[in-house]
Amino acid sequence: MLKPMLALMFWTLCVALYLLTLRILAVRKGTVSIGYFRLYPPDQAAPARALAAARHYDNLFQVPILFYLACVTSLAMGLNGPVALAWGFVALRVVHGLIHMGYNNVMHRFIAFMASNLLLVAIWVVIALQLGSRV
């Protein structure tokens, strides 16, 4: 479970660097002033790609937290964690991000998001069953 966890962390760092790049480019092109990033005033907007990247970066600190917790729980308890499911979760989160920050089709994004959530539930069910069998 450590490798999928590290892979998702790497993806999060890649999204952070992409977001930083988009924001720097927006300031250099004069699309927004650097002051925009102080308070994010509602009367101004960053470029759409930067907004999508920012939303996706925020999202990587929401549901994936439950994934990290599942991985750490599995490792701490010495369980044979559902590694294939974990890799599936990571792959779907990357697909979700590529859709979100790319062509941004809401239905495609929703399908990837829901599929990753179903895998996350499956991961927790496997962990619960493994812990339950120890009693």
Rank of each mutant, 00 (worst) to 15 (best):
S116W: 05
F61G: 01
L118F: 15
I111T: 13
L22R: 00
A16D: 00
L6C: 06
A7S: 13
K3Q: 11
V95L: 15
K3R: 11
S74Q: 12
L17G: 08
V125S: 06
A52Y: 04
Y18N: 00
H56T: 03
P64Q: 05
D58N: 12
A26D: 10
L25F: 04
F110E: 03
L79V: 04
M101K: 02
L51Q: 14
L79Y: 08
A16L: 04
L2K: 15
G78D: 08
Q44A: 11
I99Q: 12
I99G: 10
V83L: 12
L39M: 11
G88F: 10
A54C: 02
G30P: 03
L120S: 06
W87P: 04
L13P: 01
A128T: 14
L98M: 07
L22H: 00
N105W: 12
P47N: 03
T12K: 00
A45H: 14
V72G: 06
P64T: 02
G97F: 02
V90I: 07
P4D: 08
L92Y: 09
A86L: 11
T31V: 14
L118M: 14
P41A: 06
L19V: 01
L131K: 10
L20F: 07
K29W: 04
L69F: 11
P47R: 02
R55D: 07
C71S: 14
L66G: 07
I123H: 05
V27I: 15
A16C: 02
M5R: 07
V72K: 08
T73P: 11
V83F: 11
A112Q: 09
R23T: 00
L8S: 03
V94I: 15
W124C: 13
H56A: 02
M107F: 14
M9W: 05
A112S: 13
A54T: 01
R134C: 06
N104S: 08
R55G: 05
M107L: 15
A53M: 01
R109Y: 08
I24A: 08
A7P: 05
R28H: 04
M101I: 10
N105T: 09
V32N: 05
R134H: 12
G78F: 06
L19W: 00
R28P: 02
N80H: 14
V72A: 14
L66I: 12
A122W: 06
L22P: 00
K29D: 12
L51K: 06
V90D: 05
K3N: 09
L25M: 14
M1G: 11
L75N: 12
M107V: 15
F89Q: 03
V126N: 12
T12P: 00
P47I: 02
A7I: 06
L85S: 12
M101Q: 04
A7M: 09
C71P: 07
I34G: 14
M1E: 13
V72H: 03
V90R: 07
L69M: 14
D58P: 02
V125M: 13
A128N: 07
L20G: 09
S74H: 07
R134N: 07
K3C: 04
L22A: 00
L25H: 08
